[in-house]
């Protein structure tokens, strides 16, 4: 494993493998990036595939027939999962960026209460919302067959 000589910690993209001192929030940071990159890749493909509609109804129906298989439905669901996570986690990050949800500043009395600790309830609420959205999408896919 490639390590930084100064810190003896993994360098480059390998640092994404660990949450570091931030723990759970560190992993969310990594998943946020991965889901963002996945959504960007999907958007690039989406722009070209949806362009087929300019060729008319027959071309569009042919493409939809080709796309109507369980593997692509599942991949589409993964895009939805990435969106649900990236959107709700992104909203959480914006709320924190604007200094909401972290409480007022307080005296540094031992044992210190770090900012990560103060943000945790917001993170838990966000992840419950993500879970509900992922479940709703999964139910739509499996039970309703869409």
């Amino acid at each position: 494993m490639a390590v930084s000589e100064k810190t003896m910690r993994p360098s480059g993209i390998l640092r994404w493998l660990g949450g570091g001192r931030r723990g759970l929030e560190g992993y969310l940071y990594v998943i946020h990036r991965i889901s963002g990159l996945a959504l960007l890749m999907f958007l690039m493909m989406h722009v070209f595939f949806t362009g087929v509609r300019l060729l008319g109804e027959e071309a569009w129906s042919g493409l939809m027939e080709m796309a109507n298989n369980p593997v692509l439905h599942f991949l589409e669901y993964l895009v939805y999962v990435a969106f649900a996570f990236h959107a709700v986690n992104g909203l959480r990050l914006i709320i924190i960026e604007l200094a909401f949800g972290i409480g007022p500043p307080d005296e540094p009395v031992y044992p210190y209460k770090g900012s990560i600790h103060k943000q945790r309830p917001l993170m838990l609420i966000a992840m419950v919302i993500v879970g509900i959205l992922i479940f709703a999408g999964g139910f739509d896919l499996v039970a309703m067959g869409h």
Binding site: Y80, G137, D140, M144, G145
Partner: peptide, 11 residues
């Protein structure tokens, strides 16, 4: 996304 992915619910 609601229109595309949650269409079973909307239907």
């Amino acid at each position: 996304m609601a229109v595309m992915q949650l269409d079973g619910w909307l239907e």
